[in-house]
Design a protein around this nucleic acid. Structure first.
Lengths: 150, 150
DNA sequence: TATAAAGTCTATAATACAAGTAGACTTTTG
DNA sequence: CAAAAGTCTACTTGTATTATAGACTTTATA
């Protein structure tokens, strides 16, 4: 049930891009900066951000002073969207996938025990990842920070 | 978030082994029969069942009339135990794993947004897989069968 | 007691995928 | 024009997954 490095790095990058600057607006950040802050190989991160851009979750600006920024407000980007772009379907087995269904070959899918349980797992993961936005994450980090400093 | 074939095959096999025969007792079944019923390469299944045996979840009997059978009542074997033996930790990232924790390298784990969310995901998966026994699965299959035939 | 039916164990092959690296190209600003 | 940025595609490398092979042990029973 592992998240790939690709998925992990992408989520980390998106969280950075969703974290407001002092003026309260989401920042525009360069690959290099993210790669340094999160210890991610720059060339690998490049591919990841490109994929997120092509999926419509990020926009970018070329040239001096350019970088990446969120294509939509942080509250309108869910972690599920990000993970699906980078790691594919959330479902543990294809036969319970909403976005990439494939039969699993069991004689009768309706009464397949594995399928019943994995359907639940898929739903639980989806409920969490599709139900959590980048804004939810940054707010939660803020509130933990608050508790720690208090 | 994929379950490996190894994990999938193992779960399927365990569910078969947990399904009571007409006399109400869990059966003893040969590799060959499971592999035919579930379309699993026999030699691959062999390794999987051996691993489950070495982990203490299955017992076996050699020789004519032998086969594999559950080491404990089906209600005392959780899906989580099976998956952990075959696929390793449930956690999406190691830094939220209970059984195989490793730091993920972020500057401060306490305020890492990714970690907060993935912790939730781990807990949700664990709640489902550790909270569901093989007996729960076979009962659930029975009840679906009942609904369909009614 | 021989034979066949079963599991045991270890090695290895074949693939697929993940992770990372490279480099040439384009766009933008100053 | 030069420097700073992203774009695109190909390639390499390492590792894990999936599967196959084969020689071995144990047990029932004819």
């Amino acid at each position: 049930m592992r998240l790939s490095k690709r998925g992990e790095y992408g989520l980390r990058a998106m969280i950075i891009l969703a974290t407001p600057k002092d003026d309260g607006r989401p920042p525009i950040v360069q690959i290099k900066e993210i790669s340094q802050r999160e210890q991610i190989p720059a060339k690998f991160l490049e591919q990841i951000l490109l994929a997120l851009k092509n999926a419509g979750l990020l926009h970018s600006k070329m040239g001096v002073g350019g970088g990446y920024y969120l294509a939509r407000p942080a509250k309108d980007i869910s972690l599920g969207q990000i993970v699906r772009v980078l790691d594919g379907p959330l479902a543990p087995v294809k036969c319970v996938s909403q976005m990439a269904y494939e039969p699993c070959g069991c004689p009768d899918e309706e009464t397949c025990g594995l399928r019943l349980v994995m359907g639940d797992v898929r739903n639980a993961i989806s409920k969490l990842l599709d139900g959590t936005s980048l804004e939810d994450v940054t707010h939660r980090v803020d509130s933990v920070r608050g508790l720690l400093s208090a």
